[in-house]
Simulated assay, not measured.
Amino acid sequence: MTQQAAALQTYNNELVKCIEDLYSKREELNRQIKLEEEEKERLQHDIQILSEKLSKVEKSLAQRLAARATFDRTIGETEAAYTKILESSQSLLSVLKQEAGNLSRATEPRRKDH
């Protein structure tokens, strides 16, 4: 019976050791879970901050794009108006030269052909 008691004691010791190993592995797993939960919270916080920054940048970008469109429109309208002014100035200059020539001929004494 001593042999059976010794075998039972060995089994008991191994069982206790297995249970202790399971507790140790469970504690290590708990530690890893806690670390990952902390990492998850930090990442969620970072995502929130980045989302807010993204929203601000998108709003600013939209405003700047609208301003650029206004500049483009104003520049286009101004260039078109300036082109019309140049064309009108050219026409005015041409008419003025023609009229000046007509006036010069009208005010010159007439030569008599002999």
Rank of each mutant, 00 (worst) to 15 (best):
M1S: 12
Q3C: 04
Q3W: 01
Q4D: 09
Q4F: 00
A5C: 04
A6P: 00
A7P: 00
L8G: 01
L8R: 11
Q9L: 14
Y11R: 15
Y11H: 12
N13P: 04
N13W: 02
E14S: 10
I19P: 01
E20I: 04
E20R: 09
D21Q: 14
D21I: 04
L22D: 10
Y23I: 09
S24K: 05
R26M: 03
E28H: 02
E28T: 07
N30Y: 04
N30D: 06
Q32T: 05
Q32D: 07
Q32E: 11
Q32M: 03
Q32K: 11
Q32G: 02
Q32P: 05
I33G: 00
I33Y: 03
L35M: 06
E36I: 02
K40G: 00
Q44N: 12
D46A: 12
Q48E: 14
L50G: 04
S51K: 11
E52P: 04
L54T: 12
L54D: 13
S55T: 09
S55D: 12
K56N: 14
V57H: 13
V57S: 09
V57L: 11
S60N: 05
S60D: 10
S60C: 00
L61F: 02
A62E: 07
L65E: 10
A67D: 05
A67Y: 01
T70K: 07
R73W: 02
T74G: 00
G76I: 01
E77M: 06
T78F: 01
E79W: 02
A81F: 04
A81E: 15
L86F: 08
E87G: 02
E87M: 07
S88T: 13
S89K: 14
L92F: 12
L92P: 00
L92Y: 11
L93W: 03
L93M: 13
V95D: 08
L96V: 13
K97M: 11
Q98P: 00
Q98E: 15
Q98K: 13
Q98C: 12
E99D: 10
G101S: 04
G101F: 04
N102P: 03
S104M: 10
T107W: 08
P109Y: 03
P109L: 09
R110M: 08
R111Q: 12
K112T: 15
K112A: 09
K112L: 14
D113V: 15
D113C: 04
D113P: 06
H114Q: 07
